[in-house]
Computed example of a mutant assay.
Amino acid sequence: MNADSPTAPRTPPSPALWGRLAVPAGILAAVAGAFAYVGAVDPNEPGHYPVCPLYRLTGLYCPGCGGLRSAHAFVHGDLLTALRDNAAGVAAYLGFAVLWTVWVVRAVRGRPVRREPGRAQMWSIGALLLVFTVVRNLPFGGWLHP
């Protein structure tokens, strides 16, 4: 029987493949569970989640302020509201999806998946979050308030 034939028996994935996919699958399950919870328990209703301590003490928005509302809107398919509540959060959700997909593809192919971000990448991310935080707390950055 030809191996390319549709009726040819397929070999099951090797146990090593399942081992390489266990951690990414666990991470995806945890993230999906968190998004499911935030999607079910509306952060716009008072009393469900604690208030940001920085906002409570200073009245300033941190980079994470509005993140739960953003995730709730994202889960419900309301991308514009998600961006309005926390644009950095939406960028992080999409960045996670890309990095997770690359991780899984590399794991399936048996390639190493460990890649440490460089100093320049970490400084760039930190600088972007700092600029986002400063701009959302200035008078002209009101459109970035959650």
Rank of each mutant, 00 (worst) to 15 (best):
V105G: 13
P46C: 05
N137W: 01
L144I: 03
T58D: 07
A91C: 09
Y93F: 15
L68I: 11
G89V: 01
H76T: 07
R84Y: 02
T81F: 00
P117K: 06
R119N: 13
G33L: 07
T101F: 05
Q121V: 12
T81P: 03
M122W: 10
C62R: 03
Y61V: 00
R114E: 04
L21P: 06
R69N: 08
P15K: 10
L99P: 08
V23C: 07
V131P: 02
L79I: 14
F132D: 00
E116W: 13
V75T: 06
L57H: 11
L138R: 00
L138K: 02
G141L: 02
G118S: 13
W143V: 14
G141H: 03
F74N: 06
F74T: 04
P53F: 06
P24G: 10
V113D: 07
V113F: 09
P9L: 09
E116D: 14
P24R: 08
G118Q: 11
A127L: 09
D78T: 05
G39Q: 09
G77S: 12
W143M: 12
L79G: 06
A40F: 11
L83R: 09
G67S: 12
V108F: 12
R69F: 01
R69L: 02
R136D: 03
A32C: 05
P24S: 14
A3P: 11
G59I: 04
G64C: 02
F140E: 02
V102M: 08
P6H: 04
H72P: 03
L17P: 02
A73L: 03
F132C: 04
R10A: 15
G77W: 13
L57D: 15
G19R: 11
N44K: 08
P112R: 15
G39E: 07
A40V: 12
D42M: 13
